[in-house]
Design a protein around this nucleic acid. Structure first.
Lengths: 212, 212
DNA sequence: TCAAGCTCTGAATCGTGATTCACTTCTTGG
DNA sequence: CCAAGAAGTGAATCACGATTCAGAGCTTGA
């Protein structure tokens, strides 16, 4: 035997892998998932089409990783921003604002992560993304309830609803070319909406309705 | 010349068209968009594959119509249910409940309408669907604000957020095989969440935040 | 430097499902 | 009943992009 993989070749391998991932993210951020064909990714990374398959088992596998990373980054940013010592309302507001501001910068990427049609395998990754957000919000809510700032409620449902509310409110301004929408105004309204949704004590009407 | 289309043949044409649409809806309601290939639709309608193209310009054209109809039906049901003379809160609650109950029956169809990956041309139809819901909610909110039941707020944003909140809260229980989730409980929590979100006056925290 | 064995290449292949079209079957007015 | 056309058929074609693979080019330890 004569050839044996070594540290240097391994480093080169990883570097190529990173270049491929990076090219894929760029393409998604720029033109969405549809624009990111395997050969376009290969071109962007400066490798041959076939080489992509030396690093990833399939296109779906590649983009699952792409989505995993991009999602992780988003969720981490939100969690980090809202981790301060402030009270629960403030933390929730910060989480929403961070979510929304990051999405409105990088709209195309946000749209890909939140709503663009993708392969089932990649879709699975998206569900994990939404779940990660849901868990983050659920945790904030639970803290707030424990602290007596929020009333008792179905934390799982409320968290899911928050994710949906934020996502949908953003995808509107997100999918068209953004017209000249007032980003700050949308964000403020969204924060007000979300804080209210989890803050309010039962009203007469709701109580009546739930009893029925 | 000898042959000339007549009333009878026209009727037959329309009937075939309806059978194709109906088969397509059934397939979507049963297995989602992915299960609805053109030949499966043709089989279901009892015609040849090629005949589908005698009635629709393309698969996308067919399914745009399918989605248009299905969406229309859903939105109509919600609008009709919430059209009563009750006050705005009750009307909103009814709208949400109708939306949710119909989605939870026919989960597969609801998922297709709300979230399943589809052709861009069909996706456009979906956006119209969401917009129709948004408009319906926006109208309810505007009425409520005029009546002094809801505080002033950005109706467009709130309406979008409501649609997103409901959709996301449902797609959770919707996409897995529904386990043994407590539908009524989810619906109640959802109603409470939504009513609160649009009912609440600005809190100290929100006011402070918006001023900043 | 060399043989062994790895990696890279990108054109050819493959799979999938929409779409077409030459042909058959039906309808109609005369 | 007939010829002119229209509608219906479904096997063949096409489009498209993911995936493969035979050969070229590198790396390595001896």
């Amino acid at each position: 035997m004569a050839y044996r993989p070594t540290e240097r070749t391994e480093a080169r391998r990883l570097e190529a892998r990173e270049r491929i991932l990076s090219a894929a993210i760029d393409l998604v951020a720029q033109g969405g998932y549809r624009a990111a064909s395997v050969s376009a990714v290969a071109d962007g990374a400066g490798v041959a089409t076939g080489s992509v398959y030396r690093h990833f088992p399939s296109k779906a596998g590649l983009f699952a990783e792409v989505f995993r990373r991009a999602s992780q980054r988003e969720v981490n940013a939100v969690v980090a921003a809202s981790a301060g010592e402030d009270n629960a309302v403030e933390r929730l507001a910060t989480a929403i604002e961070t979510f929304a501001r990051r999405a409105l910068r990088g709209r195309r990427l946000a749209w890909a992560l939140l709503a663009e049609p993708v392969d089932p395998a990649v879709e699975a990754q998206r569900l994990r993304f939404r779940r990660a957000y849901r868990d983050a919000f659920a945790s904030l809510l639970a803290d707030g309830i424990a602290a007596g700032v929020f009333p008792e409620q179905r934390v799982e449902v409320a968290a899911a609803a928050l994710v949906g509310a934020i996502g949908e409110a953003l995808v509107g301004p997100l999918s068209p070319a953004g017209d000249d929408v007032d980003d700050d105004g949308v964000i403020d309204a969204l924060i007000a909406f979300c804080i209210s949704s989890v803050t309010h004590e039962e009203t007469e009407h709701v109580r009546h309705r739930l009893a029925a």
